[in-house]
C-alpha cells in the first residue's frame, strides 16, 4: 500500500495551482504551509469526531474540541512532533474527556465549584505560561506575546461569563458547560511543563513503536 505523504499531496496541489495560475516562490511557501495546516486539521479533528460518533459522544467531544481550540489559538501549548502523533493523541484524549462528561453527572452546585476552580487555575496558568510557543512556530516579539496573553484572558473570561449565564439559568445545557470546562482545563494543563512532558513522552513512545 502506498504511504500517505503530506509533502507529496501539498506539492501536487501546488503544481496544479502553478499550471493554472501564476504564483511566485513566496506564495508557494505560504500555500504549502496552509495545505499542511488543513490536512493536519482534517486528520486530527476528523478522527476525533469520527471516534466520538462511534462512541455516541459526538456533541460532548465537539464542545470539548471547540473550547480547547479557541483557547489554544491564543494561548498555544504543547504540540506533537508528527501529524500521526497529533491525530492519535487528540483522538484518544478528546474521547476520554468526552466519556468522562457522558458518564459522570455532577449536580449544579458541584459543577459550579468545578468551574470556579478551573477558572482560578486557568488564570494562574495563563498568567504564568501563555502564550506557550512551539519550535515550529516560535513567538519572538514582546508585543505579540502580550497581545496573545490578553486574548487568552479574554477567551477565558468569555467562557466564564457563559458559565455564569448557565448558573443563573439563562443557558440550559448542563452537558455543554461541563464539556467546555474540561476543554478549558485540558488546554491550560497543556500549557504547563507537565503538559509538555506528557506529550514528549507520548511522542517518544510512538517513535519506539514505529
Amino acid at each position: 500500500m502506498k504511504k500517505f505523504n503530506v509533502d507529496g499531496v501539498a506539492n501536487n496541489l501546488i503544481n496544479y495551482f502553478r499550471r493554472n495560475l501564476e504564483i511566485d516562490k513566496d506564495q508557494e511557501a505560504i500555500l504549502k504551509y496552509s495545505i499542511h495546516l488543513v490536512i493536519s486539521a482534517i486528520f486530527s479533528l476528523g478522527f476525533a469526531l469520527f471516534a466520538a460518533l462511534l462512541l455516541g459522544i459526538f456533541p460532548n467531544v465537539l464542545i470539548i474540541i471547540l473550547t480547547n481550540a479557541i483557547l489554544r489559538t491564543f494561548s498555544g501549548g504543547a504540540h506533537s512532533s508528527s501529524m500521526l502523533g497529533c491525530t492519535i493523541y487528540g483522538t484518544v484524549l478528546m474521547n476520554i474527556l468526552g466519556i468522562i462528561t457522558k458518564y459522570t453527572h455532577p449536580n449544579k452546585g458541584i459543577l459550579a465549584i468545578i468551574i470556579f476552580i478551573v477558572f482560578i487555575f486557568s488564570i494562574l496558568i495563563i498568567n504564568k505560561y501563555a502564550p506557550a510557543d512551539t519550535p515550529g512556530k516560535p513567538i519572538t516579539t514582546k508585543v505579540k506575546k502580550q497581545k496573545l496573553r490578553k486574548l487568552s484572558f479574554s477567551a477565558l473570561f468569555i467562557w466564564f461569563g457563559l458559565c455564569v449565564l448557565w448558573y443563573v439559568g439563562a443557558i440550559k445545557s448542563h452537558m455543554m458547560i461541563y464539556a467546555s470546562t474540561l476543554g478549558v482545563l485540558w488546554q491550560c494543563f497543556s500549557l504547563t511543563d507537565w503538559g509538555y512532558a506528557l506529550l514528549n513522552r507520548f511522542d517518544k513512545s510512538l517513535h519506539m513503536i514505529k
Partner: peptide, 22 residues
C-alpha cells in the same frame, strides 16, 4: 488558503496538537 496561513501566523499555534514549521 493564504488567509488561513496569515491568521495562523498571527495566532499562538494551530488548533490541533501538530504545528508545521512556519
Amino acid at each position: 488558503l493564504t488567509f488561513l496561513a496569515f491568521t495562523n501566523a498571527a495566532s499562538a499555534c494551530w488548533v490541533g496538537t501538530y504545528q508545521p514549521e512556519i
